[in-house]
Every structure is written in structure tokens, then in C-alpha cells.
Design a protein around this nucleic acid. Structure first.
Lengths: 236, 236
DNA sequence: ATCAGTTTTAGTCATCTTGACTTTAACTAG
DNA sequence: CTAGTTAAAGTCAAGATGACTAAAACTGAT
């Protein structure tokens, strides 16, 4: 970007550069228990600063792209996936986020469905990590992920966002597993059922999930669109 | 910025420029009823585009300023005030927000206390408006104010932010007036009292507000710091 | 001094919500 | 056909909420 030729004086007068990054969440089965847990893809940095460390997918904002389009492109280019949910997280603009230049990063967070997430590209430089076992990331990306996790948990607790982790049809037990994985608690199945069934956006279908070992659970469908940000309004 | 000399080709390759704007809320007595209502200061644009229209205070991000510092500076330069609360609202980056160039605006919102707000500078080009009677603003600023209002109401309903509209000591009736003004409802005084007294951050003082016409109300104090964003974490 | 008017403060009561728990229904594996 | 397991519905007490009543404490006018 500006780092190649710019000397110190030029760097200090150049406007802060603008980047887009994305925190991408998906549920994948834990290796140990097989239960769903939170994962996110990171990319390995192939140049300085922080060469070799893992970082959030991101890049500069091109002139003709909207902010959410740029975030979607990040997501597609690194994982090959399309998000089922995408929301702006925060604009991070601290003076010393990058040692070489002033960068303001507008960060988005996304949810992808597990059927897709299973197909996601992985390579030497792109790998999925458990959200609770990340190690040290480049820049301030640990803090960004922490904040994204906080927002995700908040949205899950109050809003109706869990369904974007799931496919079109799902059982109430699957919804409960999403809550249990993200909030890291266990929930009473009966009370959880009552709670979910009270939300009008959940529609009962006539279908049942067959092939399980026990009583076949009814399938449900989510009929709400996410609340809207200014781009696409949603609830804190 | 870039508009002076840049031709069309240069504009399309130049990186999007970055600006900071601020939505500043304060309670002031309504002319009609005398009850507190929501107001915000706007500045008149003195050049194109949108010359003559009212707009949110804002400006470019200087190289050595953090984002909240830039927002505070906006606030101080236009109104002479220091905010009692400041939080990032959203980064607006639509392609056609400004007709002349691509601008990404990181918008903050602030609360100021009415004792200060009464002293705020006003001039030919800086004036306070009732938040519900703004008319057409420059750029996408009507949408930005709408979103800021939505966030304010949300935070007020769930978080503990009302106190930043008030001074250090306040009566419970004053808190109720804040809620009534911002949410535009009327609330049962007894139930509201019970609700507020259940929050641990509200501390009873031994003092009473004297000089009123009726039974003197007890004064309270807010002892909580606002939750924290990544800069300064807070609740949806 | 007293009374009417107003606001603060405390309290009651029925309704709604929530968390812990029990029971019945429906399936599979052996 | 039975034991084991999950789905689904229901019960019950505790806690929160909304509508309302009433007492306390002050001012200003009579």
C-alpha cells in the first residue's frame, strides 16, 4: 500500500488507510465430544508485520465496493463460503494497531451454516480454529475476536440469530445445541422449548427428522429476516 | 481534501476518504410545555455539496488522533462542550453518500448534560434542533440520526445510560423525565421508582432537592461506569 | 393556622414470566 | 416385548411487572 516507498514524513501526513476484516463463525463438531462448538477461519500472514502469525481475513476496501460487499468478498476469497448472516462489528482505529502505518479497520462478523462450513477451503495458509483456543494473533486481532464473541453471545441471548447457524429446517434440540455451544452453558430442554416456541418467527412444519435413534423430532423453520442495521438493521 | 484538483479518473482510483461525524444529544426544555425534550446541534454547510443545508458536525480524521478523540474534538469545536458519554455508532460507507467522492464516515454519538448544554455555543451556522423536527439534512444524515435515535432508545431501555443526561445528583423524577422524553411515553412514577431502585448502581444520598413547590425529593447518585466498547465496552 | 393541591414515597394485588421438575409419547436396539 | 432414550407437554413455586391505593411532606392561598 503506502509502505513501500513512503518515508516517515510522508507516512505521517498520508491519511490513515482503510481496511475491511471479517470474523467468521461456524459451528463444527468438536474432535473430543462430537458436540457442536464454535470455530473460525484464520489466514497466515505471509509478509511483515507479524509474518507467520495467524490473522483475521481482510484487505483494503476497493473503491467501488460497499462495506458489506467487501466483507463478503473476504469471506468468499478465504473460505469459498457465502455468509448466512453478516453484520458490521466495529471500526477499530487505534493509533498503534499496526507498527508500520496507521490503519483503520472496519470489521464485520458473519455466520455460516455448518453444511457449508464442512466444505470450506482449507490450505497451508487458511485454517479453522476453535474460538476458545486461538493463541496469539497478529495486530489487535485477539481483542477483535473477543469483542465479536461478546456481540455474538449478546445477540444470541436477546435477538433471533441462532437460526443462521442452521439450515432451513431444524429441530428445537439443534437450536438448543447452538445456544449451548455459543453461550457455553447447558439449558433445560423443556424450558428452552417453551421459550423458543413463544417467538413468533419460528414456524412448525409437518415434517419430522427421521433416522434418529429415538422419537423423531418435529422440524421447524425460521421465517424472520434479521432486524436491520442502517445497512441492515439489527438489535444490539 | 481531494476534490480541489482531482479529475474523475483520479477520484475513482484514490482510496475512499475517511471522516468522523458525531450525533450529539442533549435534553433541553421544550418551548411549548417546558418539559425536557431531545435536541441535537447541527452545522450549516458553507460549501458544496449540499451548501446551505444542515448537517452533523464532522470532519476528516487527522493522522495522530484516535477515533473517539476526533469525535470529541468535533463536539468541542462546534458546541464548546465535553461529552459525558461517547460511543461509536456505526461506519457508513455507501458508495453514493456524497455526490463528489467516496467517503466513509465513522459516526459517534454523544450525550451532554443539560447544565452544560444550556451554555453551548450557538451562531449563524451552529444551531440546536429538536430531534423529532429536523427537516432535510445533507448527505444521508437523516438516516444516521434515525439510527442514532434507535440506538439511544435501545440503550436507555436496557442499559444504564440515562444518568449521563443528568448531573452528578438527581432525583428519581428527573430520571423518569429522561425516559419519558427519549422514549416518548409516560411512565407510572411508582413502578418506575421501584424499577430504578432495584438497580445496584443507583446510590441514595442523604440530600434532598430543596426549593421545589412540593415535597422535597431525595437526591441520588450514579456509581456505575458505562459498560465498555472495545474502546470502551457497552451493551447493545 | 389551616386547607387545598401537588409531588414523593411506600405498599397491595392480580397477572405474567421463569426455573426446577414430573409425566407421557414415540421411537430404536436388543 | 422390553429397556433405554429423546421429544413434548404439563405442574408448581418464586420472581418480576403493571394497575392501583394511600400516606407523607411540602407550598401557596385563604
Amino acid at each position: 500500500m503506502y509502505t513501500n516507498s513512503a518515508n516517515v514524513a510522508e507516512r505521517q501526513t498520508a491519511p490513515p488507510s482503510l481496511a475491511i476484516s471479517t470474523v467468521i463463525f461456524a459451528l463444527r463438531p468438536s474432535e473430543a465430544s462430537g458436540r457442536p462448538t464454535l470455530w473460525l477461519p484464520l489466514v497466515r500472514r505471509i509478509r511483515e508485520p507479524y509474518k507467520g502469525l495467524w490473522a483475521l481475513p481482510g484487505g483494503p476496501l476497493s473503491h467501488s465496493e460497499s462495506l458489506p460487499d467487501a466483507a463478503s468478498r473476504n469471506l468468499r476469497e478465504t473460505t469459498g463460503l457465502a455468509p448466512s448472516y453478516l453484520e458490521q462489528l466495529y471500526a477499530f482505529g487505534g493509533l498503534h494497531r499496526s507498527p508500520t502505518q496507521r490503519v483503520v479497520s472496519i470489521v464485520y462478523w458473519a455466520l455460516v451454516q455448518p453444511t457449508e462450513a464442512a466444505l470450506a477451503d482449507e490450505s497451508e495458509n487458511v485454517r479453522w480454529f476453535r474460538a476458545d483456543k486461538l493463541g496469539d494473533l497478529a495486530f489487535d486481532h485477539n481483542a477483535i475476536v473477543d469483542y465479536a464473541l461478546w456481540r455474538l453471545r449478546n445477540k444470541l441471548a436477546y435477538g433471533s440469530i441462532a437460526y443462521h447457524f442452521l439450515g432451513e429446517y431444524f429441530t428445537l434440540a439443534q437450536v438448543r445445541e447452538v445456544y449451548e455451544a455459543v453461550l457455553d452453558t447447558s439449558l433445560d430442554p423443556a424450558n428452552f422449548r417453551r421459550h423458543i416456541k413463544a417467538t413468533p418467527e419460528i414456524e412448525e412444519t409437518g415434517e419430522y427428522l427421521q433416522g434418529g435413534k429415538h422419537r423423531p423430532p418435529r422440524l421447524y423453520r425460521f421465517t424472520g429476516r434479521p432486524g436491520l442495521d442502517p445497512d441492515n438493521r439489527s438489535t444490539p
